[in-house]
Amino acid sequence: MKKKLVLMIVLIFGLSIALASCVTTAPVKPTDKNFTAPKVTLESFEIPQYDGYWYFSKKVKPTKGEAGDRGAILPMSFVFNVENRNPYPILLNGITFTVVFDKEFSLVTYNNQDEYWIPAGKTDQVRATTLITARSALLSLLVTGGFKLKAKGWSPWKALETWWKGVPEGTTPVDITECSFSFSADGVQKAYPYELKVQ
């Protein structure tokens, strides 16, 4: 009986080590030097919900609810292909980018720290959804793009209306700038810049 028990312990211990080594050991160990930048491309861009263009100031009494400075939403959804060109799995652990309309007007900076494992040699898809409103865009536009608007002779309201109609129809140029994707693998942390033309 005792012999059987000892044998079982040895067997299970051996199996455990073998199993654990399968789980943790990659054929190639990630290093700072052998880490290859994953390839990131844009698979698709869509407006998941469209509500037209409108704006109400807080002076307007709503039918229900409270008055306020409120504008139409403009959600934007970007699906990225992230190709892991490394011989080991990598963890995508951060995405940051700014959405630019008409080549020079930054409207929203997106940030996401969700984690996605991408197997060696595989391509994963990641969806990033931003949401701005005509109100939030107005404020952002005035403090970051006010002088540019003035130089072009554009009114912020005209710009917003053009964009709220043009982005869903594909007539307003949309770009992704200041974009970084962060990855890690076995303690190696990397971030890479990407510039992507959306439409």
Binding site: T96, L107, V108, T109, N111, S136, A137, L139, S140, V143
Partner: peptide, 17 residues
Amino acid sequence: TTGATSDVGKDYAIGMA
């Protein structure tokens, strides 16, 4: 990063991360 102080807030947010 999108509001009335985003002219200074975006850089702060990225710096914090």
